[in-house]
């Protein structure tokens, strides 16, 4: 069983959404055009990220996220280059250079920077290794993907991508799912959209009510859709295309059959196929 493909066909947003919903554990490798990234997940949560351009050791992470100065980072690397991140973390805390919170926040910011950047990648082979975990000595911080997806999809700049996902805004409406909204960080614009969700309001109407242009509304709705906060429904009052009346002879016959007769046809088919 595999999970591989290219971002051209299955985007970063879709991939993270899949990992999130399927509560996957393992390593996702993406070989982009100029860089390669690896993301590690445990039960659907992001726990570690690295790229080939940025080695993900603790000192480098803390330098990058401003928790250590260049001099401090260099000094530490000289002294403790071969020690594990866990040992180094303890050393840094003992030396009162950083606090536990600094370390957690630093690792988190570092991961987010890498993962948000991936949302702008449009090309690259990806590949998921089920159950692969980061090296033991690494400091991992579990991050809920709902927020990552929501924030990451705001960085999508390609209109076409958004166009693909949501075809005609005039003929779709939204429904709020039963996923709790309180766990995610919604922006003011998100709330403005949410406050207009109603089965009778098409997405186009929601945009008009909020004075949003098409790109804005698509971005917001796309993010909320991917994070599973809303789902698409047909607006009320817009009739689904009528089922075509059976016009073939067989069809007419079927239409005039009683429910019991119809059921007996299906049962016969079942018996027959079992015997093939």
């Amino acid at each position: 069983m595999a999970l591989k493909g290219n971002l051209r066909d299955f985007s970063t947003t879709q991939l993270l959404n899949l990992v999130n919903l399927a509560r996957k554990t393992g390593k996702l490798t993406i070989n982009g055009l100029s860089e390669n990234a690896s993301l590690y997940f445990r039960e659907g949560r992001l726990v570690y990220a690295a790229t080939n351009a940025q080695e993900g050791h603790l000192a480098a992470m803390l330098l990058k996220t401003g928790k250590l100065t260049r001099e401090q980072a260099d000094a530490i690397n000289n002294q403790a280059a071969n020690s594990s991140d866990r040992v180094m973390g303890k050393y840094l805390m003992d030396a009162r250079l950083v606090s536990r919170d600094d370390i957690v926040q630093g690792v988190k910011d570092y991961m987010l920077e890498i993962v948000y950047d991936l949302f702008t990648w449009t090309d690259g082979d990806f590949f998921f290794e089920q159950d692969a975990l980061p090296a033991n000595d690494r400091i991992t911080v579990p991050l809920n993907l709902d927020n990552v997806i929501l924030e990451g999809s705001r960085r999508i700049e390609q209109f076409e991508k958004l166009q693909d996902e949501l075809p005609d805004l005039g003929i779709i409406a939204l429904k709020i799912t039963d996923k709790p909204l309180r766990d995610v960080k919604l922006t003011q614009d998100d709330w403005r959209v949410i406050s207009h969700i109603h089965p009778r309001n098409s997405v186009k109407q929601i945009a008009m009510n909020n004075n949003m242009d098409e790109f804005q509304i698509r971005k917001i709705v796309y993010g909320m859709l991917q994070a599973g906060l809303v789902e698409i429904i047909r607006p009320e009052g817009l009739e689904q295309k009528k089922t075509i009346a059976p016009i073939t002879r067989a069809g007419r016959k079927a239409a005039s059959q009683s429910p019991a007769e119809k059921r007996s046809v299906v049962t016969k088919l079942i018996d027959r196929i079992r015997r093939i």
């Binding site: 493909g5 290219n6 051209r8 066909d9 075509i244 016009i247 073939t248 069809g251 079927a254």
Partner: peptide
């Protein structure tokens, strides 16, 4: 549309090895 007239049901086959066809 012509093929679907009066059908009892339908099966959507997906090529599980080609994500470029999922859409």
């Amino acid at each position: 549309e012509i093929l679907s007239e009066g059908m009892l049901g339908f099966i959507v086959l997906v090529d599980s090895v080609r994500p470029e066809t999922f859409r």
